[in-house]
Design a binder for these strands. Structure first.
Lengths: 96, 96
DNA sequence: CTTGTATTTAGATAATTTTCTAAATATCTT
DNA sequence: AAGATATTTAGAAAATTATCTAAATACAAG
């Protein structure tokens, strides 16, 4: 669950897709206009973003429209904060 | 810069290292006790964490002591929030 | 200055990930 | 139903990453 999330965020192309979607929903083709890799490769990236629940899809006629799912990203941000906040957790101290 | 950060966070072993360090500084050897992979492999992970500035090191005698550098993680959390907050950015709307 | 302990570096192999082309599926239009 | 457009799936090749063993470096203690 977390692994899918961090793995999805690890690739620059996928982060750029998220940035694009931040401005509003886009079809797969519209998103593809921003990249020079094949649509098949992009579709693979879409799959990973979807698996991580960072995006949602909706079919609209012959297009498939992608949009951000901010829920999981909020979780991600929370996880990072947690990761850096020893006080928030029952940590067995051993401060050097 | 961001790439190093997200890439560093993408691996479960490295995230576990961060979790361990959250409880306090540890030498490379102490950290290694928590894993079943070779110390050489761990050293490689340390290198990536360091490159991403997620950890700092300090030599103490023959040991090298690792500790969390929370600065960059705060940045990371901020980046995620930014990534999900269209209002915070000058986004050219095209809401479907 | 030699020996032992801790850690990193080098170089190789294995595993994973990204990308491609070709083919499949789904929908729309006529 | 047939052709056109949009997207995904399959399978293979290329690139990257994780891991290993062996050797190198750094320090500590005799």
């Amino acid at each position: 669950m977390n692994q899918a999330l961090f793995q999805a965020l690890a690739d620059p192309t996928r982060r750029e897709i998220l940035r694009i979607l931040r401005a509003g929903s886009r079809s797969a083709g519209e998103i593809a206009e921003n990249f020079s890799i094949s649509k098949a490769s992009l579709s693979h990236h879409f799959g990973l973003l979807k698996r991580a629940q960072l995006v949602r899809t909706e079919r609209r006629g012959q297009h498939i429209v992608y949009s951000l799912d901010t829920t999981v990203m909020q979780d991600a941000a929370a996880i990072l904060f947690e990761l850096l906040d020893p006080a928030g957790v029952a940590g067995q101290e051993k401060k050097s």
